[in-house]
Amino acid sequence: MAAPGWPCLRAAGAELCVLDLSVQPGAKHTGVDGLHDGALRVRLAAPPVDGKANSQLLAWLATELRCPKRDLVLLRGEASRRKQVQVALPELAVATWLDRVLCP
């Protein structure tokens, strides 16, 4: 099977993948805002205070990917705009979601 081809996504096992994110907290609305420097740009309505933005990011991703929040792990970037999130879904499932939100 061919790789899905998103620069922000890579497989980390048969049922795991890693999503590279560029997050902008304090936005008016939460949502995807395209790609930025090889990462998926996400604008978050939550402020970057006391982990609120990270918590909202994981909750939003869980809703978008239709998986439990426990299936998402923040690997890197707790206090940074650049983040890596491990997703307990096959790479193809996340690539399909990226196709839907980035190429409507």
Score class of each variant (00 low, 15 high):
26 G>M: 08
56 Q>R: 14
27 A>F: 02
36 H>I: 01
32 V>R: 08
34 G>D: 05
44 L>A: 02
34 G>Q: 01
57 L>C: 05
50 D>L: 13
42 V>S: 03
39 A>I: 04
40 L>H: 07
49 V>H: 08
11 A>Q: 08
12 A>I: 01
20 D>V: 03
9 L>S: 14
54 N>W: 03
51 G>V: 10
55 S>T: 11
47 P>F: 04
48 P>F: 07
56 Q>D: 08
17 C>Y: 10
30 T>K: 04
25 P>W: 09
57 L>I: 00
12 A>F: 05
57 L>F: 06
19 L>D: 09
21 L>S: 02
38 G>R: 05
47 P>R: 12
13 G>R: 04
20 D>L: 14
31 G>P: 05
45 A>D: 04
40 L>T: 13
56 Q>S: 10
10 R>N: 02
22 S>Y: 01
17 C>K: 06
26 G>Y: 02
42 V>I: 15
44 L>E: 07
33 D>Y: 05
52 K>Y: 00
9 L>I: 15
31 G>F: 03
11 A>S: 14
20 D>K: 13
18 V>D: 14
19 L>V: 10
52 K>H: 12
39 A>S: 10
12 A>D: 12
11 A>E: 10
53 A>R: 06
32 V>M: 09
54 N>M: 10
51 G>T: 07
13 G>K: 11
23 V>I: 12
19 L>G: 10
19 L>E: 00
27 A>L: 09
35 L>V: 04
20 D>C: 13
51 G>W: 09
52 K>L: 15
56 Q>Y: 01
35 L>H: 00
20 D>S: 14
55 S>Q: 10
17 C>N: 02
9 L>C: 15
31 G>E: 03
39 A>Q: 06
30 T>G: 06
45 A>F: 03
24 Q>K: 11
24 Q>G: 04
16 L>N: 03
19 L>H: 07
20 D>W: 03
17 C>D: 11
12 A>P: 01
34 G>A: 01
15 E>D: 14
46 A>C: 09
19 L>R: 06
24 Q>F: 05
11 A>M: 04
25 P>D: 09
41 R>H: 13
52 K>D: 15
11 A>G: 09
50 D>P: 03
23 V>T: 14
51 G>Y: 12
27 A>Y: 00
26 G>S: 14
18 V>G: 07
33 D>R: 06
53 A>L: 07
11 A>C: 00
51 G>D: 14
16 L>E: 11
28 K>S: 15
47 P>W: 00
43 R>L: 12
10 R>W: 02
14 A>P: 12
55 S>M: 01
18 V>W: 00
10 R>G: 06
51 G>A: 14
28 K>H: 07
41 R>Y: 10
14 A>Y: 13
43 R>Q: 12
42 V>K: 00
21 L>W: 01
34 G>N: 01
43 R>A: 15
15 E>M: 10
36 H>M: 08
33 D>K: 08
39 A>G: 10
50 D>W: 14
26 G>P: 09
9 L>P: 13
38 G>N: 14
17 C>R: 12
